[in-house]
Amino acid sequence: MFTRAFLDALTQGTSSQKARLNLRDVKDVAWDFLSSIPDAPRPVVDSPDQSEGDVAEIPFFPNPGFEKERIRLAEKEQRRRLEEQFHYAEETQRRQLEEAEKRQQLGRGGASVVPPEKETDSFDLLSPQKAQGWGKIDTFLSKRRRVAWICFMLLSLTVGSVLPGFDRGFFSISNLGMSTPYLTIIGSVGATGVGLLFLFSKDKRPFLDILGGISLCGIAFTNFALSHYISYYRAYFNYDSYYNYHYASFYIFAFFIFFVLFSLWLFVGTRFVLRSANIVGGLLLGVLLIIGGIIRNYLGPLRFTQMREEEDDRTESPAKPTTEEALVCARWTNSHECG
């Protein structure tokens, strides 16, 4: 009988805040069990030698009730918080209804009440450790989400579609040898579309993240691979004309501008894919980017240009026109003043 009560006490523990129980605690709990039995003998604890302290006070046995109590308190706290949030939402809604009624009474309209949109973002729940690195960027972007997306779309449209049409110096770019950069224009429109998609989507859906992210990555990488926006050969080798040298520096400037734009698309696209994709998805994206980079290096327009240079007998004058018209002009006139 005693051993059974003793084991019950040890396996059930007490709801006290003690992580471990001493022998007196166990004896008391055991007696709680035994006391319900008629004529149950009472256990006795004695410490014959207490010259160096009482062994009965040493926390000897783990208290299973402590963990249960801890979980119970945590659940209680969670319930309290939820109730607080619920009451807060109720109170806010009540106030808004009151204000709407007042406005109606004053004849200023506003029958429907639209509660202010709250930026509910999962980043608010980030732990302090995750608030570093990506977390800081996420926190910043989630706070200024709308502004960030509008800036992104404006930048994409302006630099990718509008500016190349105005000035052929600073924003000169060609795709696949074509003077009109169709890929960049389509890409910038596509990036704007993705931006609109994210701007107006209220919930963060993994499917949307991955789809939008891959679209941006694809746009960025296509432009990286197939654009021909730099003519650094002129800048380095063609010193016979101040005009050409000066003109070439514009191309270098254009390179940086479009490099930044395409990098931004790649960066944003990668960020959204990796946010929702699992490890396999992330690795797949990385592998695709590497393969694309290799293809671009060996089969891309840069390589074609180099091959054309090699086929051209005028290698001593490496200045190369960047448009088809200039190429035709150069070949017909046998002059590098074209373009």
């Binding site: 009988m1 005693f2 051993t3 022998l23 039995i37 256990p43 014959p48 010259s51 009965a56």
Partner: peptide
């Protein structure tokens, strides 16, 4: 050297009740 200490619980019982 730790203290020499004893702790003891003595309990008479009725085995059939276990």
């Amino acid at each position: 050297l730790r203290p020499d200490s004893y702790q003891m619980v003595v309990q008479p019982c009725s085995p059939e009740l276990f």
